[in-house]
Amino acid sequence: MNAANLTLSLVIGVLFGGGTYLITQRALLRVILGFTLLGHAANLILLLAGGPAGPAPDAAHIPPDDPPRTADPLPQALALTAVVITFAVTALLLALAHRGVVLNGDDEVPDDVEDRQLGRRPMRERELETGEEDL
């Protein structure tokens, strides 16, 4: 069955693209905004993968068609808990950003100093060389 829906797919693309742009930023707040947008995109993908729109899945009022053409309840249940978890994780990320502001005065993500210094460490590779005259 073809459930492809151009409008919804484009909305998902816009949400995902916007989210992607924001998570590559330095300010942690914008990263969190991006994360929330990605969450919306993921929930919509779940719904769309479950099939086309239809009447709400209410077992008391199932349409007489066979198979009944209600919206698929399973992705809805999955997305429902995902929405709440996204909220909890957003709060956690906000607490992290808050911590960054408390400690550093801003919420910018700095470069990893360890990684940067990797290239500046003195060479130890020469250790492998020997002065021996083994043929």
Binding site: M1, N2, S9, I45, L48, A49
Partner: peptide
């Protein structure tokens, strides 16, 4: 993601 969503839902 748009293309992937279209492909996935087309094969629903």
């Amino acid at each position: 993601v748009t293309i992937a969503t279209l492909t996935v839902s087309a094969n629903h």
